[in-house]
Design a binder for these strands. Structure first.
Length: 218
DNA sequence: AACATGATCAACT
DNA sequence: GTTGATCATGTTT
């Protein structure tokens, strides 16, 4: 898949749903990818394809919005006060999942990155559904494709990801990120993070310019 | 008491 | 369409 442009990728995902993704030719992002500094991972994840496969069903969505969370120098990060039972996954291996429950109701998906043990991760805030849309609709309880994966809680629900997937590796066929064509730097917008009250001055939110699949206002 | 949220509904432009 | 208030719900500090 790595040589297809995004339009072809979309056609493949939308109109050949009966065919499984060919992982022999798809480029799964290696764990090495997540070793970069957190903000760079957050930026580079824009446009990549998030994939989950279970029970022969494939879910895929193009990542459109991310936020970087640092460590002790970032009061908004769960890892700011050091390792705890909740944030343990953040201090684990880069290229693994950190899933937590928020407001007692929703789940948020993070990709652990940076050097192992540093406690940095990227929150996946929104994505554009590409495959398994009927399943996402069922998981979410709505038919509005525009809103299926908009917002971190909705994204996790659409993908059926709960805290039992905390610590999961991100380079398996069960759950992974596929590489895609490079997004021009000018098409990635960098803003302050949203939904937080601390460290609001840091520009650690990234989203795909012009995408309709972005959380927050307008 | 706060929380890296989302759905709903009233009241408005 | 948009904005603001309110609430649901459970875990962490």
């Amino acid at each position: 898949l790595q040589n297809e442009n995004l339009r072809n990728l979309l056609i493949l995902f939308e109109y050949m749903p009966e065919n499984p993704i060919c992982f022999d030719s798809a480029e799964i992002l290696p764990r090495q990818f997540y070793l970069q500094p957190t903000a760079e991972v957050a930026r580079d994840l824009i446009g990549k394809i998030f994939v989950k496969q279970t029970h022969g069903q494939t879910l895929a969505a193009k990542i459109t919005e991310t936020e970087a969370y640092l460590s002790e120098n970032d009061p908004a990060s769960h890892s700011a006060t050091g390792p705890t039972p909740r944030n343990k996954a953040m201090f684990g291996q880069p290229g693994t999942l950190y899933v937590y429950k928020i407001y007692g109701i929703h789940r948020c998906i993070n990709f652990v990155c940076g050097l192992s043990g540093t406690g940095t991760a990227v929150l996946i805030r929104a994505s554009e559904p590409m495959k398994g849309i009927d399943i996402m609709k069922r998981n979410r309880g709505t038919d509005d494709v525009m809103k299926l994966c908009k917002g971190p809680g909705n994204l996790a629900k659409a993908f059926g990801i709960d805290t039992d997937m905390n610590f999961a590796r991100l380079d398996t066929e069960e759950i992974c990120v596929l590489d895609s064509e490079k997004i021009p730097a000018g098409d990635i917008v960098n803003t302050p993070r949203i939904g937080i009250t601390k460290a609001t001055g840091l520009l650690l939110r990234f989203y795909l310019r012009g995408s309709k699949y972005i959380s927050g206002k307008r």
